[in-house]
């Protein structure tokens, strides 16, 4: 089975804070990491390969620095990796990203299964996976929390819903987006790290994948950011004072209406 995992390099949100004085992002030492949801997609791909055989290709659209993350993907079990990178991709929204990934994947090969994280933690849109499947005209299942069964022809999966879950069956080719509950990602292996060090990562640019200049990057994006601004603080703080007992008493009084 040929499995493609789409992964994205994102800033580590845990480390990002707003500077309370300047109200700008305190970004000192913020590291780039593999999007956490994508780690779970990669893990699931590797497990599937271990159980039914095949190949796992990790694909990322991003700046040249994302190569390090792709090497990490190899050290965690991907067989090879492709970086889709071009200055012309900058400013892509989810439409242009799905367009770009579609062209890249068509160039790389026929996949039976495409796995994506549910969403990336920098944009939180959860749109690229479904958009990509729609562009390929293949079925997709979003928010998969468990693969119950996998064989040579298809899958039975659990899809997370707001009120529980649905069990759905689907044949290849198919795209799944996965949630974190699906598995616990492994740490890199020593053999994987050694392989990752040596492996050549294929780089593809806009021309390589045959993308229309008008359909990629900012130009190809139907949505445009027209304004960015810091979120409003809510304010209205009333620190209670006194000993802990006094503070607790004051608080309990004020919460009476909720009791």
């Amino acid at each position: 089975m040929k499995i493609c995992v789409c992964i994205k390099q994102v800033p580590d949100a845990k480390e990002v804070r707003l500077d309370p004085v300047t109200n700008t992002l305190a970004r000192e030492g913020v590291q780039s990491i593999m999007n956490p949801f994508d780690e779970h997609a990669l893990e699931e791909a590797v497990r599937l390969r271990e159980s039914v055989g095949g190949e796992v290709v990790a694909v990322s659209m991003g700046p040249p620095q994302a190569e390090a993350m792709l090497r990490e993907a190899i050290s965690c079990g991907a067989d090879r990796a492709v970086l889709v990178s071009d200055r012309a991709f900058a400013g892509a929204d989810t439409w242009a990203t799905a367009y770009t990934l579609e062209h890249a994947l068509r160039r790389i090969g026929d996949f039976d299964l495409i796995l994506c994280g549910k969403q990336a933690i920098d944009g939180d849109t959860a749109q690229v996976g479904p958009g990509l499947a729609t562009r390929f005209a293949i079925p997709y299942v979003a928010c998969v929390q468990k693969i119950r069964h996998a064989d040579a022809t298809g899958l039975v999966v659990e899809r997370m819903m707001d009120d529980g879950y649905d069990v759905v069956a689907v044949d290849y080719p198919v795209l799944l987006t996965v949630v974190k509950d699906i598995n616990e990602p492994r740490v890199p292996s020593l053999k994987g790290k050694m392989k990752a060090k040596k492996e050549t990562i294929l780089h593809l640019n806009a021309a390589d994948i045959g993308a229309e200049p008008a359909a990629i990057g900012l130009a190809g994006s139907p949505t445009r950011v027209v304004k960015v601004f810091p979120p409003e603080a809510r304010g209205g703080r009333a620190m209670l004072s006194g000993t802990v007992d006094e503070q607790v008493a004051q608080l309990a009084e004020r919460l009476r209406r909720y009791l």
Binding site: T94, W95, V128, P130, R135, A142, D162
Partner: peptide, 23 residues
């Protein structure tokens, strides 16, 4: 932006070549 909305609306936007803003 429910499980259902987030699942199929991006597909609709793609079919329509429309811009979609989440959340």
């Amino acid at each position: 932006a429910t499980a259902i909305g987030r699942s199929f609306i991006p597909g609709v936007a793609t079919l329509l070549d429309a811009g979609l803003t989440a959340d």
